[in-house]
Structures are given as structure tokens and as C-alpha cells.
Write a protein that binds this DNA or RNA. Structure first.
Lengths: 221, 221
DNA sequence: TAGATTGTTAATCGATTAACAATC
DNA sequence: TAGATTGTTAATCGATTAACAATC
């Protein structure tokens, strides 16, 4: 496997490749070429080959790629084939939704426990994941060394909670709080799910398409 | 206001500017320079000025930008100051979470109704938003012309539901189904929230940081 | 005025796409 | 073998950053 700095753009395309290959695999497709992938995914074939070549040589001239083999390679690059421990902090509505519906295992994680301050939640379980009181958070992290913390607490306590899990040794934070976290420990990886950023972008494109529709000719300046 | 094709990268930064300016405004800050914004947001000052200049001239030499005025300009560009109708399809856990917790209004939308097939949900309301039976979806769209449909249905019926709302006249789809939608009507704007793509990227960076930590010297090839 | 900061043009940097020899 | 398709190098394209005249 090669090394060197891989650009963020490449990393963000890998999950899409993985999903696509999972689908092919599910439908029993055995081989695929970069050209076929490109046309079905709306990408450029050169780009796909470039992306793969950051990590090794997975194809064969004149044939293309073996779907199953390529799928496993990309899963491995992303760590989707691992089983790392994860915890969830903030077992409110959103937290429980993720506990119940999100497939952590397909991303290489196993959700071990959730934490909340509400005593009426403590002691319950959602999809076999127990909810503990937040007072046990630090001890649990020290004992179980989870790689990931899912942050679904209210905005108000987002920063302190992020710092708490980072101090206790968590290496990655999946942040749903819609706050830009500047975690004190600089080697912690933070990935944000910003619902509102996404919807605002959509809103822009909606406005733009209305504008285009309203001016069919291409109005001069 | 200028025109011309604005790059996607610029559009994706606008919501971040808006949040930052909202914060400044909330804290009573009256003026800000591109340099201050850059250092606090971890961007480049030239980039910020370039981004703004796509849409007009909002600053003043020697002074910088008036926070309130800039905030309103960007909100207007994104449509965050509007009040467009939206509906939600699929009032399960995730759907209800969004109905209850997400601030649609701050993104320029008003959630008017939700739809589900489960009769035990029909008739209920979440945060004043009523849940109707999915049989009334088409009629409701024709009558109320919502600009946006939030798609929180199960994967299985994602494609058909997306096509249904598009056919009935919805212009934008906020897609939470983790399926890549190819909506038949090509002028429909689809914005995906792909939880697993996000987590897989995080997983990659976690692996990478472990690798770096394990090889402190910079191993030669 | 002197200092600061914009908007914009030019320079640099990086990412995407095209081209093609290698070879299955 | 002939056709197809890779991996990679080179060319193009676009985005970011630097520089600076204009001017508040």
C-alpha cells in the first residue's frame, strides 16, 4: 500500500465507492471497470483510477476490477471492516434514533453504551445498548477505551462534553451538536454533521434554480 | 448583485459564515474584518473576501464589515430569511426528531405537515406539526405547493417516495435515506445527509492518526 | 493625515481530466 | 491474437493565496 498525503476530496469519495460496490456485490456482479463505475456514478473514469492508485493497484489490464476484492480493499482503507468500540453521549431523541436505527457495524464500530443525565433514561436500553448515568462516563472510557464518541447532547453542554471525552482518551468525536467544536486536545478527530449547513446549501440551490427559471434567455448584465 | 456560476465550494462556506456572524451579532460585536474572521474560523482572509465578492461589495476600506449588515446579506443569499413551506415524509423516529428539534425557520423554511403510512401516528402532532396519512400527500402538495420535502422514509420506499413528491411539484428534497437518489425530474434539487459517509471518513482519519502515531520518525518507502 | 482594510488582479497551488504505453 | 482496460504521466482546469492600488 502506498502512502503520502491523501487529499480530503479523495477520502470523501471512498464511502461512495464502497456503497456502490456493496450494491454491485449484493446484485451478484463480479467485475466492473472504471468506465462503468464512472458512468453509473456520474464521475470521470480517470478520477476513479487516480483515486484507487493512491492506495495500491487493485485492477487488471483488459479486465477491470474484481468487485468483491475491490470492495474489501476500500472497506479496509476506511476501517469499515473493523469492530471498534464506540459510545454515545446524550440519549435524547436524536441519540436514541441513532442507537435504534443507525448501522454502526457497517462503518466498523460497535456501540457499547450510551450516557445521559436524565435519571428516567438511565437503566433503559435501546437496541441492546444500555444507557448509563453521565457520572460513569469517565470511568467507562478509562475501562473500555472506546475509539469514538457520538455527541448528541444539547448545544449548551457540547463543548464541555467534547473536552471531557477527549480528556478521558477518546480519539474521535462524531459531532451532531451543530456547534463548531474546537477541542482542546489537538489530536482528536472531529467530524461534524451540520444539518443546518446542509439545508442552507439546498436552500441556495433552490433559489438559484428559481432564478434561472425566471430568466430563460440568459439576461445580459 | 453579481451573477455567474458560483462554485460549490463557495456555497458550502456560506452557512459557516452565517453561523459565525450570528454568533458575533449575538455577542454584540458591531464590526469585523476579513482578517479577524479568517483567524477565528481557520480560513484565509483573501478567500473570505473572494467569496463575498461573488455576490457584491459588502465592506468598507479601512473599516471592514458591519456584522449585522453582512449577516443579513448572507442570510438573504442563502434564503435563510424566507418562510417557504416544507413537508416531511416518514414520521418515524428520525422524522419526529427533526420535527421536534430541528430549527427549520432559521434555514428559511416552515414545516407545515408530516406524512406517514402508520395509522397509529396519523392524527398526532409533533411540535404543532400534524401527521397525515400518506394517501393525502399528493393532494396536500398540489394545494400547498411546498418548496421542500424532507425524506425520512425507510430505504425500501425511498426512490418511489422521492419520485412521488417530485411529480407532485416539490422542487427540493432533503434526503436522509442514505440512498443516492436519481430523481426522474431532473430539475429537482436533492441534498443528501449521508450519516455513514460521514462516519466512514471519520474512521479513515482515525486510522490515519493511529498510523502516524505508530511511526513517529517518518518511515522511508 | 496615517493606518487599516477592502475588492480585485495576478501568481500559485492542487485537483481533475486526457492521453497512452503496458499488458491482461 | 485483438480488444479492453489498467496505472501513470502530462495537460488542463479551477480554486486558493498573495499582492496591491484604491480609499475609507
Amino acid at each position: 500500500m502506498k502512502r503520502g498525503k491523501i487529499s480530503n476530496n479523495v477520502i470523501r469519495r471512498l464511502p461512495r465507492y464502497l456503497h456502490f460496490l456493496n450494491d454491485l456485490s449484493y446484485h451478484g456482479v463480479v467485475r466492473v471497470s472504471s468506465g462503468e463505475m464512472a458512468s453509473q456514478m456520474g464521475l470521470n473514469a480517470s478520477q476513479i483510477r487516480q483515486d484507487f492508485s493512491c492506495f495500491g493497484e487493485f485492477g487488471q489490464q483488459g479486465y477491470g476490477y474484481n468487485v468483491e476484492m475491490l470492495r474489501q480493499e476500500i472497506a479496509s482503507i476506511l476501517g469499515a471492516d473493523q469492530k471498534r468500540s464506540a459510545i454515545l453521549v446524550g440519549a435524547g431523541k436524536l441519540g436514541q434514533t441513532l442507537m435504534g436505527n443507525f448501522d454502526f457495524e457497517s462503518c466498523g464500530f460497535v456501540l457499547k453504551a450510551a450516557f445521559d443525565i436524565r435519571t428516567d433514561l438511565v437503566g433503559a436500553s435501546v437496541s441492546q445498548v444500555p444507557i448509563y448515568h453521565i457520572d460513569f462516563l469517565q470511568d467507562f472510557i478509562r475501562d473500555h477505551q472506546p475509539a469514538l464518541a457520538v455527541l448528541t447532547v444539547p448545544r449548551r453542554i457540547a463543548v464541555e462534553t467534547a473536552n471531557a471525552v477527549a480528556d478521558a482518551g477518546v480519539r474521535g468525536i462524531w459531532n451532531f451538536t451543530n456547534i463548531s467544536l474546537n477541542v482542546a486536545k489537538s489530536d482528536v478527530i472531529v467530524e461534524d454533521i451540520h444539518f443546518s449547513d446542509s439545508l442552507l446549501s439546498l436552500s441556495y440551490y433552490l433559489k438559484e434554480s428559481e432564478r434561472d427559471a425566471g430568466e430563460p434567455k440568459g439576461t445580459p448584465t
